[in-house]
Protein backbone atom coordinates (compact mmCIF):
# COMPACT_ATOMS: atom_id res chain seq x y z
CA UNK A 1 0.00 0.00 0.00
CA UNK A 2 2.86 2.39 0.78
CA UNK A 3 5.69 0.67 -1.08
CA UNK A 4 8.47 3.02 -2.11
CA UNK A 5 7.24 5.81 0.18
CA UNK A 6 9.32 7.27 2.94
CA UNK A 7 7.92 8.56 6.20
CA UNK A 8 8.96 10.54 9.24
CA UNK A 9 7.00 9.94 12.44
CA UNK A 10 7.74 12.28 15.36
CA UNK A 11 7.54 10.87 18.87
CA UNK A 12 7.65 7.32 17.54
CA UNK A 13 9.51 5.72 20.45
CA UNK A 14 6.36 5.02 22.43
CA UNK A 15 2.57 4.89 22.37
CA UNK A 16 0.63 6.07 19.36
CA UNK A 17 3.70 7.18 17.39
CA UNK A 18 5.26 3.76 17.81
CA UNK A 19 2.11 2.06 16.51
CA UNK A 20 2.02 4.46 13.54
CA UNK A 21 5.67 3.75 12.66
CA UNK A 22 5.04 0.00 12.77
CA UNK A 23 1.85 0.26 10.74
CA UNK A 24 3.41 2.40 7.99
CA UNK A 25 6.40 0.05 7.82
CA UNK A 26 4.14 -3.00 7.68
CA UNK A 27 2.57 -1.47 4.59
CA UNK A 28 5.89 -0.97 2.85
CA UNK A 29 7.03 2.52 3.85
CA UNK A 30 10.56 3.31 4.97
CA UNK A 31 10.29 4.99 8.35
CA UNK A 32 12.38 7.48 10.32
CA UNK A 33 11.59 6.92 14.01
CA UNK A 34 12.00 10.21 15.88
CA UNK A 35 12.34 10.44 19.66
CA UNK A 36 13.29 13.06 22.24
CA UNK A 37 14.99 11.08 25.01
CA UNK A 38 14.05 7.40 24.77
CA UNK A 39 16.87 6.23 22.54
CA UNK A 40 16.55 2.61 23.55
CA UNK A 41 12.81 2.51 22.96
CA UNK A 42 13.27 4.08 19.55
CA UNK A 43 15.91 1.49 18.67
CA UNK A 44 13.49 -1.25 19.68
CA UNK A 45 10.93 0.12 17.23
CA UNK A 46 13.57 0.16 14.49
CA UNK A 47 14.59 -3.42 15.33
CA UNK A 48 11.00 -4.60 15.19
CA UNK A 49 10.53 -3.01 11.77
CA UNK A 50 13.76 -4.55 10.46
CA UNK A 51 12.84 -7.94 11.87
CA UNK A 52 9.73 -7.84 9.71
CA UNK A 53 11.76 -6.99 6.63
CA UNK A 54 11.21 -3.24 6.67
CA UNK A 55 13.60 -0.30 6.52
CA UNK A 56 13.92 2.20 9.38
CA UNK A 57 16.30 4.25 11.47
CA UNK A 58 16.01 6.16 14.73
CA UNK A 59 16.68 9.88 14.94
CA UNK A 60 16.85 12.12 17.99
CA UNK A 61 15.38 15.62 17.76
CA UNK A 62 13.41 17.91 20.01
CA UNK A 63 10.52 19.02 17.80
CA UNK A 64 10.34 22.40 19.51
CA UNK A 65 13.88 23.25 18.38
CA UNK A 66 14.12 24.68 14.89
CA UNK A 67 17.76 23.62 14.52
CA UNK A 68 17.02 20.05 15.63
CA UNK A 69 14.08 19.79 13.26
CA UNK A 70 16.00 21.11 10.26
CA UNK A 71 18.85 18.65 10.88
CA UNK A 72 16.41 15.80 11.30
CA UNK A 73 14.51 16.52 8.08
CA UNK A 74 17.75 16.90 6.15
CA UNK A 75 19.00 13.59 7.45
CA UNK A 76 15.76 11.82 6.55
CA UNK A 77 15.83 13.18 3.01
CA UNK A 78 19.53 12.36 2.62
CA UNK A 79 18.92 8.81 3.81
CA UNK A 80 15.71 7.98 1.96
CA UNK A 81 16.09 10.27 -1.05
CA UNK A 82 12.55 11.59 -0.63
CA UNK A 83 10.02 12.38 2.06
CA UNK A 84 6.46 11.45 1.25
CA UNK A 85 4.73 11.20 4.61
CA UNK A 86 5.14 13.31 7.73
CA UNK A 87 3.26 12.34 10.87
CA UNK A 88 3.37 15.03 13.55
CA UNK A 89 2.69 12.93 16.61
CA UNK A 90 5.12 14.06 19.33
CA UNK A 91 3.23 15.51 22.26
CA UNK A 92 3.24 16.01 26.01
CA UNK A 93 0.78 16.89 28.77
CA UNK A 94 1.25 19.17 31.78
CA UNK A 95 -2.26 19.06 33.22
CA UNK A 96 -3.49 21.53 35.79
CA UNK A 97 -6.54 23.65 36.45
CA UNK A 98 -6.33 26.99 34.72
CA UNK A 99 -6.15 28.77 38.08
CA UNK A 100 -3.14 26.72 39.12
CA UNK A 101 -1.43 26.39 35.78
CA UNK A 102 2.02 27.90 35.71
CA UNK A 103 3.24 29.93 32.81
CA UNK A 104 5.99 27.34 32.19
CA UNK A 105 3.43 24.55 32.00
CA UNK A 106 1.49 26.49 29.42
CA UNK A 107 4.57 27.40 27.37
CA UNK A 108 6.07 23.93 27.42
CA UNK A 109 2.97 22.29 26.01
CA UNK A 110 2.48 24.96 23.34
CA UNK A 111 6.15 24.67 22.35
CA UNK A 112 6.07 20.92 21.86
CA UNK A 113 2.51 20.27 20.73
CA UNK A 114 1.87 23.32 18.55
CA UNK A 115 5.14 24.98 17.61
CA UNK A 116 6.67 21.55 17.03
CA UNK A 117 4.04 20.86 14.36
CA UNK A 118 4.69 24.24 12.75
CA UNK A 119 8.46 23.78 12.66
CA UNK A 120 8.37 20.25 11.31
CA UNK A 121 5.74 21.07 8.71
CA UNK A 122 7.72 24.07 7.56
CA UNK A 123 10.89 22.02 7.31
CA UNK A 124 9.36 19.38 5.02
CA UNK A 125 7.37 21.75 2.83
CA UNK A 126 10.18 22.58 0.44
CA UNK A 127 10.85 18.91 -0.30
CA UNK A 128 7.18 18.02 -0.71
CA UNK A 129 6.55 21.02 -2.97
CA UNK A 130 9.48 19.96 -5.13
CA UNK A 131 8.11 16.43 -5.31
CA UNK A 132 4.67 17.81 -6.09
CA UNK A 133 3.28 15.29 -3.68
CA UNK A 134 3.21 14.62 0.01
CA UNK A 135 1.06 13.81 3.00
CA UNK A 136 1.14 15.55 6.33
CA UNK A 137 -0.88 13.97 9.12
CA UNK A 138 -1.17 15.79 12.41
CA UNK A 139 -2.16 14.00 15.59
CA UNK A 140 -4.47 16.46 17.34
CA UNK A 141 -6.87 15.36 20.07
CA UNK A 142 -10.60 15.16 20.53
CA UNK A 143 -10.28 17.59 23.44
CA UNK A 144 -9.03 20.16 20.92
CA UNK A 145 -12.59 20.03 19.57
CA UNK A 146 -14.56 19.63 22.80
CA UNK A 147 -12.41 21.33 25.47
CA UNK A 148 -11.41 19.57 28.67
CA UNK A 149 -11.16 20.79 32.25
CA UNK A 150 -7.59 20.64 33.51
CA UNK A 151 -5.99 20.87 30.10
CA UNK A 152 -6.11 24.53 29.05
CA UNK A 153 -2.58 24.38 27.63
CA UNK A 154 -3.06 21.06 25.85
CA UNK A 155 -6.48 21.94 24.44
CA UNK A 156 -5.24 25.30 23.17
CA UNK A 157 -2.34 23.56 21.45
CA UNK A 158 -4.50 20.83 19.92
CA UNK A 159 -7.16 23.30 18.70
CA UNK A 160 -4.23 25.22 17.25
CA UNK A 161 -3.06 22.10 15.43
CA UNK A 162 -6.50 21.70 13.86
CA UNK A 163 -6.37 25.30 12.61
CA UNK A 164 -2.83 24.84 11.37
CA UNK A 165 -3.92 21.70 9.52
CA UNK A 166 -6.61 23.64 7.64
CA UNK A 167 -4.32 26.51 6.72
CA UNK A 168 -1.45 24.28 5.62
CA UNK A 169 -3.95 22.27 3.57
CA UNK A 170 -5.08 25.43 1.78
CA UNK A 171 -1.57 26.71 1.14
CA UNK A 172 -0.23 23.44 -0.24
CA UNK A 173 -3.27 22.05 -2.06
CA UNK A 174 -2.18 23.23 -5.51
CA UNK A 175 1.10 21.36 -5.01
CA UNK A 176 -0.67 18.12 -4.23
CA UNK A 177 0.47 18.07 -0.64
CA UNK A 178 -2.49 16.87 1.42
CA UNK A 179 -2.75 17.78 5.08
CA UNK A 180 -5.17 16.17 7.52
CA UNK A 181 -5.49 15.65 11.24
CA UNK A 182 -6.56 12.76 13.40
CA UNK A 183 -8.22 13.55 16.71
CA UNK A 184 -7.87 10.53 19.01
CA UNK A 185 -10.15 10.06 21.98
CA UNK A 186 -8.96 8.15 25.03
CA UNK A 187 -6.12 5.86 23.98
CA UNK A 188 -4.19 3.55 26.34
CA UNK A 189 -0.56 4.77 26.36
CA UNK A 190 1.96 6.08 28.90
CA UNK A 191 0.26 9.46 28.55
CA UNK A 192 -3.06 8.14 29.84
CA UNK A 193 -1.65 5.50 32.22
CA UNK A 194 -0.70 8.25 34.61
CA UNK A 195 -4.31 9.43 35.01
CA UNK A 196 -6.13 8.45 38.23
CA UNK A 197 -8.46 5.44 38.08
CA UNK A 198 -11.60 7.58 38.66
CA UNK A 199 -10.72 9.76 35.71
CA UNK A 200 -10.45 6.68 33.49
CA UNK A 201 -13.79 5.34 34.76
CA UNK A 202 -15.58 8.59 34.06
CA UNK A 203 -13.99 8.77 30.59
CA UNK A 204 -15.23 5.30 29.79
CA UNK A 205 -18.79 6.30 30.60
CA UNK A 206 -18.60 8.91 27.86
CA UNK A 207 -17.49 6.52 25.12
CA UNK A 208 -20.41 5.02 23.16
CA UNK A 209 -18.26 2.12 21.92
CA UNK A 210 -17.61 1.39 25.59
CA UNK A 211 -13.89 0.73 25.47
CA UNK A 212 -10.72 2.75 25.51
CA UNK A 213 -8.90 2.96 22.20
CA UNK A 214 -5.56 1.37 21.53
CA UNK A 215 -2.68 2.90 19.55
CA UNK A 216 -3.39 0.62 16.59
CA UNK A 217 -6.89 2.10 16.25
CA UNK A 218 -5.19 5.42 15.48
CA UNK A 219 -2.38 3.95 13.40
CA UNK A 220 -4.75 2.33 10.92
CA UNK A 221 -6.52 5.63 10.26
CA UNK A 222 -3.16 7.34 9.77
CA UNK A 223 -2.20 4.64 7.29
CA UNK A 224 -5.43 5.35 5.38
CA UNK A 225 -4.70 9.08 5.28
CA UNK A 226 -1.18 8.36 4.03
CA UNK A 227 -2.43 6.09 1.24
CA UNK A 228 -3.84 6.74 -2.22
CA UNK A 229 -7.26 5.88 -0.84
CA UNK A 230 -7.35 9.36 0.70
CA UNK A 231 -6.44 11.21 -2.53
CA UNK A 232 -9.44 13.52 -2.38
CA UNK A 233 -9.23 14.60 1.27
CA UNK A 234 -7.42 17.58 2.70
CA UNK A 235 -7.84 19.92 5.66
CA UNK A 236 -10.00 17.44 7.56
CA UNK A 237 -9.91 16.29 11.16
CA UNK A 238 -11.02 12.69 11.66
CA UNK A 239 -12.40 11.85 15.10
CA UNK A 240 -11.17 8.44 16.17
CA UNK A 241 -12.68 8.33 19.62
CA UNK A 242 -15.23 5.54 19.88
CA UNK A 243 -17.96 8.09 19.29
CA UNK A 244 -17.11 10.39 22.21
CA UNK A 245 -17.61 13.63 20.29
CA UNK A 246 -20.04 13.72 17.39
Amino acid sequence: MLEGKSALVTGASRGIGRAIALELAKNGAKVAVNYAGSEQKANEVVEEIKKNGGEAFAIQANVSSDADVKDMVKQVIDTFGSLDILVNNAGITRDNLLMRMKEEEFDEVIQTNLKGVFLTTKAVTRQMMRQKSGRIINIASIVGVSGNAGQANYVAAKAGVIGLTKTTAKELATRNVLVNAVAPGFITTDMTDKLPEEAKESMLSMIPLNRLGNPEDIARVVRFLASDDANYMTGQTLHVDGGMVM
Partner: peptide, 9 residues
Protein backbone atom coordinates in the same frame (compact mmCIF):
# COMPACT_ATOMS: atom_id res chain seq x y z
CA UNK B 1 3.19 33.70 -3.81
CA UNK B 2 3.66 29.96 -3.91
CA UNK B 3 4.73 30.10 -7.57
CA UNK B 4 7.41 32.57 -6.54
CA UNK B 5 8.59 30.28 -3.72
CA UNK B 6 8.78 27.41 -6.21
CA UNK B 7 10.58 29.51 -8.79
CA UNK B 8 13.18 30.44 -6.23
CA UNK B 9 13.65 26.74 -5.47
Amino acid sequence: SLDVVELVM
